[in-house]
Simulated scan of single mutants.
Amino acid sequence: MQPHHDGSPLYVSDQAPRLGDTVRVRVRIPRSFGPVRAVRTRSNPDHEPRFADASSVGSTPGWDWWEASIEVENPVHGYRFLITRGDGSSVWLNATGLWTTETLDVDDFRLVAYDAPPEWASSSVLYQVFPDRFARSALADTRRLPKWALPANWTDPVDDVPPGRSKQFYGGDLDGAAERLDYLADLGVTLVYLTPVFPGRSNHRYDASSFHQVDSLLGGDEALARFTAAAHERGLKVIGDLTTNHCGDGHEWFRAAYGHPDAPESDFFYWLNDEHTEYVSWLGVSSLPKLNWASQELRRWFIEGPESVVAHWLKPPFSLDGWRIDVANMTGRYREDDFNAEVRRTIRRT
């Protein structure tokens, strides 16, 4: 058995501190660990180490509890524990475990002082709906299949080998999903996560050809409005799925820029030749051109302010409760560029 600390309220007094707040952190040390002479926290505000002494605050069968106070001095404030045994030897406890050598700052426990997420985000029971695979309404039979689709019967097994992996098409839609909302509510679900609903050339729709409309194969804009209204009537939240790292090579922005260096949209992408016919894509997948967030116009169109794509779908009649961001880790990052923090904070403000 080893000393233990985690981010739960039992170990961290404030789950959503502000800059300047003092937070109490606790570590639980098993008696089998042996005598403990001292416990300290080691923080690193502004990249300068700072220590605070912990005191013994109580015991439970087989365990002793130690507590220290830490002032939150940076938006992401790291800390670890230094435990000195009775024989004078010391060990470090960080988010990766117990160490006898000094550890890296990146592996520290963290207090985060950014604005807290909404309460419902951490208390939700989430159910992911992949629209093509979840349910079909009667209207699905009236729609013409797209050229890219490999049609499948609802009872056919899933094909996980390309091209079927992304082209196999079952024809599930949003009205079919809405018809199953009572089932989700009966399961105890409180939050529905829809994978992308924008038009594309795949069953997963992570290759959006527009961010301004819902795929007609899913029932179009009206179907999304019906779905969220029906979900909200049952007390369910709904979040959408947005690709901020890339779009599809059929996207209206990309088609306007491809081969047209003078197009306003050409700044939205990374080009590898002057003719704008070769470009950077996500992991080399040519159908997923990577977005260039150095473009202020892209930010204005896509993520910033009440007229942006991000805001549009949060407003009535669609009223999404939030977004899941796809490939958030790579968004805005390419070679020497790193706009990731700017993008994610702008999305959050919007």
Rank of each mutant, 00 (worst) to 15 (best):
W92A: 01
L93F: 04
N94R: 05
N94G: 04
A95Y: 03
A95Q: 03
T96I: 13
T96V: 11
L98E: 01
L98A: 09
W99M: 06
T100E: 15
T101F: 12
T101S: 15
L104H: 12
L104N: 12
L104P: 00
D105Y: 05
D105I: 07
D105E: 15
V106N: 07
D107F: 12
D108S: 00
D108P: 03
F109M: 00
L111G: 00
A113F: 00
A116D: 00
A116I: 04
P117M: 06
P118R: 14
P118N: 08
P118E: 15
E119C: 03
E119Q: 14
W120E: 08
A121V: 15
S122F: 11
S122I: 08
S122R: 15
S123K: 15
S123D: 13
S124Q: 13
V129T: 10
F130M: 08
P131H: 06
D132S: 09
D132P: 06
F134N: 07
R136P: 02
R136D: 08
S137D: 04
A140P: 10
A140Q: 11
D141I: 02
T142V: 13
R143G: 03
R144N: 11
P146I: 02
K147H: 11
W148T: 02
W148C: 03
W148D: 02
A149P: 02
A149K: 10
L150E: 06
P151L: 05
P151G: 02
A152M: 08
N153V: 01
W154L: 14
W154P: 09
T155P: 00
D156I: 01
V158T: 06
D159F: 01
D160V: 11
D160S: 12
V161P: 03
V161G: 00
P162F: 07
P163G: 12
